[in-house]
Simulated assay, not measured.
Amino acid sequence: MAIQNRTYRVGDVTIQKVLEQKLRDVPKTFIYPTAKPEDFEGITTQLAAEDLEENREDLILSVHTWVVRTPKHVVLVDTGSGNHKQRPLNPSFHEQNIPFLERLRDEAGVLPEDVDYVFNTHLHVDHSGWNTVIKNDRWVPTFPNARYVFPRVEADYYGSPASHNEVNVPSLGVFEDSVLPVIEAGLVDFVGPDGGTYLDCFKFIPTRGHSIGHMSIQLASGGETAIFGGDILHHPIQVLRPHLNTVFCEFADEALASRAKILRKLAEDRALYCATHFGGSSTGYVALKDGTYTWTYA
């Protein structure tokens, strides 16, 4: 896989990251509340500079979109947290005004009308926010010519009172302003609970646990593979300590099982991993050495 100017090539498909924002000074004990002190012992030396703040304690996280160009289509994988969204219970994403669409244009050469497909791995606050923008006091699809593709189970759940629980407080309001408008516009292709192939080179892989219908997305082209993992892994810490769930994982046992499945697949297939929240390039490779997974940035 040739990597040039932060553009990654998988067969005849290219992948480029467009940053929405970095999240700084995030305490690892907040992200991993069930961790024991020994889970973090010796881990600092295995993490890169872009993973931790200068104090080598607090985490650096990224929120971004993946721009995927196939020979036929422009695809966005996950859309960050969006602008002007009302998130009073989640200050990190409340009433933002970030020049994300300008970056999409200037860095990736993509205008909203150029996008053919938007894939959401799941429908949390920081993965579906740019699905919509405010126009004349209404939320409308940001990418008017795109088909929006996401798990039906996610839409059903977040559109119902069943999701109104403590773990989902950070995503309150997301369905109403970032999901329902694209459904009502008739732009959605739902993915069933078993996942499956989409277009010529994508496959949705069920990885329930972090959320109720979470999907990872495999890209295969020219004998090469990449995986967009959504929130299977929040930070390289979880490659080194796969038993750690985040504070945002709603179904703990299933999250562990899904993480194990994807880590095993990444190592066996030598697939390029495109993470949603890792710092730096956010891309790299997982390997298995002496029974322990390792992470190397690409």
Rank of each mutant, 00 (worst) to 15 (best):
Q4P: 00
N5I: 00
R9N: 09
G11S: 07
K17Y: 06
V18S: 06
K28Q: 14
F30K: 11
P37R: 08
D39E: 07
G42A: 09
I43K: 03
T45A: 14
S62L: 07
S62G: 09
V63E: 14
V67K: 10
P71E: 08
P71V: 10
P71C: 12
V74G: 01
V75S: 06
L76Q: 11
T79M: 11
N83D: 15
F93T: 06
E95A: 12
I98A: 01
T121R: 01
H127T: 13
N136W: 02
V140F: 02
P141D: 09
P141T: 08
N145S: 13
P151R: 00
A155N: 06
S160M: 01
S163D: 10
S163K: 03
N165F: 00
P181M: 03
V182H: 04
I183C: 10
V188C: 12
F190C: 02
P193Y: 04
P193Q: 13
P193C: 02
G195H: 05
G196Y: 03
T197N: 11
Y198V: 10
D200M: 04
K203H: 15
F204Q: 01
R208N: 11
I212Q: 01
H214I: 04
I217S: 00
I217H: 05
L219I: 05
G222Q: 08
G223C: 07
T225L: 04
D231A: 07
I232M: 11
Q238I: 08
V239C: 06
H243R: 12
V247C: 12
E250T: 12
F251R: 13
E254A: 13
A257Y: 00
I262C: 00
K265G: 00
L272C: 06
F278N: 03
G279K: 09
G279A: 12
S281V: 08
S282D: 11
T283E: 11
Y285T: 01
L288N: 05
L288F: 07
A298P: 05
